[in-house]
Design a protein around this nucleic acid. Structure first.
Lengths: 340, 340
DNA sequence: AAGAATTGCACAAACGTTTGTGCAATTCTT
DNA sequence: AAGAATTGCACAAACGTTTGTGCAATTCTT
């Protein structure tokens, strides 16, 4: 194995050529700049032989683009976001882009830091599942011409392009299903209240109830976090109420795990004592103590569409080339809802 | 809100100072270079007011370090790796580093591409859960002084520092437990065969059997992938054998999900028909049809230790400052093993 | 065969930082 | 009060690319 060459200069010396010529050949501009075919071949061969990999940092500085996309995710440990991140990463790399990953902990301050970090690192674009609805910084960046795609949610009052599930429809269908199975006292355990996907789901929940002449009981809508602990706490709270519920709509995969933990602790079984429908289909959903009825979100589609939009914006340079995607969810019916 | 300044030059002009001085102040070298206190304060105030964020690309080029760490993961959609990635990302950012995420699909060629990409992007270090045991490229990079930390596995025959679970002990304890519960025909569904964590687990499995005078039946050791599908296929294969098994040791969380799917299809129940112990504790493990006995790996510890090692190596510059970590697993006993 | 056109490459500047060094202006020393 | 020491900053080069432009050498044209 030949010794590696550390920059274009060294490679040029080996070839008795100028860095200019080497650069042009390796960037496919040999013809444009009339580099002879024989020189071209020598260069490409030597680049391989001496294992020359261009310094992307220097390149980024000169070209003012880094071929890097910032990805801000509320919780990369959550397989829902993990799957989205996976499709995004693979699609990005296939197009020559790398992903700088930032976990925002679903916290707005952390997210803001991440955004500033990414602009400092000159990310060509940012894909973000925002932690809240403080959209100022993102809109700012977008206005300055940096592509921004919002995923999993959208930011109301902005025109930032987004890719999300039709959360309203997902919740609506889930609740209609519960009503169809005879339930009337249906609780809804929410995630973060200020997030569009959450509020759309709550709207879907309310509208479905009202459509069927069931009054919305505000005590039945509770919670403020997408995590497991919140599902656990809110379930206990709901069980303690005088108004008895017969079913729970859990607005995330983690929330429903918390629900299960609380029910187990309370000695209640699914679905004989309490019925459940949960957002987010998971690999394990079918194998739970009671196979769970879920609202599946199309993770791969979200990732793919987001990356497509991003690439389109990066290519077209302008910001108005991206469209929004509202992807249909799917109700997967299993055994976690009892016929009343 | 004042208009933003786009580089240090513009900020310097606003202040009627040279970029040199501004740079020195913002990098905390005001004293070293005798910048007056009043100037210092003006600079920091203006930097904030004009929202100056240094171009990290230019900085990276000049300093020959990017404050960037490459993270290569076989499957970021798997919550096991997701959790590890999360702790690594958070720890990295807390120390001023960003993570470039690469999903290798547990494929060696993809991994090699990712490694070359990361060196081209001048990552300061690489944390990798290798897809195989072709260690050449990594060793090469390590020799050139770039810190490399192997996680979840190790690369035999190299001295690349690693952080992994004590997989041998984990499997050994799991099998001893199964034997203690009266099982003798215990199958083992493997992940990728050439990966240390897998082979260590298989060794642990074999040694535990032999320790208890149970002959190792090669037909009982099967499979070649950490994914769900492999668990499914191998289970069917095992069930079709004439030599009947009473228990399965599944070497990953995804494998055990495949096992469950196959058993369900075959109309068999856990643990009455078949007992299971699975690697990788998950949030749902306790809520499965039969609460699963698992071997828990310390994800957070792995991530934290890896990042600590990495930072140590980055600080000390030399490669021999990192130690290996072999972290203890934990057997979590639930109901998925029947007393024979 | 001489001028024009083409071929094939190299020079030098630039991207935005950081940093060794140098040099006025100020302050100190006696 | 004059020389020495200190203070406070700026100049210029460098990191490794890319690219507009220019200029020899070669080939073509008539």
């Amino acid at each position: 194995m030949k010794r590696k060459v550390k920059n274009i200069q060294e490679l040029a010396e080996q070839l008795h050529l100028s860095p200019t010529t080497v650069s042009r050949v390796l960037n496919g501009k040999a013809e444009t700049y009339r580099i002879s075919e024989s020189t071209s071949k020598r260069v490409t061969a030597a680049a391989k032989r001496f294992q020359y990999y261009p310094n992307r940092i220097a390149r980024g500085l000169k070209l003012e683009k880094t071929e890097t996309i910032g990805l801000i995710i509320p919780d990369i440990g959550n397989p829902y976001f993990g799957s989205i991140a996976k499709t995004i990463e693979l699609a990005a790399r296939a197009s020559g882009f790398s992903i700088i990953l930032c976990d925002s902990l679903d916290d707005e301050t952390t997210e803001e830091e991440a955004i500033n970090l990414l602009t400092g690192r000159k990310a060509d674009g940012i894909i973000v599942a925002p932690a809240g609805n403080r959209s100022g910084l993102l809109v700012d960046i977008y206005r300055r011409g940096i592509p921004v795609i919002v995923i999993d949610r959208y930011l109301a009052g902005t025109n930032l392009p987004f890719v999300a599930t039709d959360n309203y429809a997902g919740a609506y269908r889930a609740v209609e299903y519960l009503i169809g199975m005879g339930h009337r006292n249906i609780a809804c355990i929410q995630g973060k209240n200020d997030i569009s996907s959450n509020s759309d789901r709550v709207r879907g929940y309310c509208d479905a109830l009202q459509k069927h002449q069931i009054e919305v009981n505000p005590d039945f809508i509770t919670g403020n976090d997408f995590g497991e602990e919140n599902g656990f706490i809110q379930t206990h709270k709901l069980l303690g109420q005088s108004n008895k519920i017969t079913a729970i709509l859990a607005l995330s995969n983690l929330i429903s795990l918390g629900v299960l933990r609380a029910l187990k602790q309370a000695g209640l079984a699914v679905p004989s004592d309490i019925s459940i429908v949960s957002f987010d289909e998971q690999a394990y959903s079918a194998f739970l103590a009671c196979p769970m009825t879920t609202v599946e979100q199309p993770c791969e589609e979200i990732g793919k569409s987001a990356m497509e939009s991003m690439l389109k914006m990066l290519r077209n340079g302008n910001n108005n080339s991206a469209e929004n995607y509202v992807l249909p969810p799917k109700l997967i019916i299993r055994d976690s809802v009892k016929k009343q």
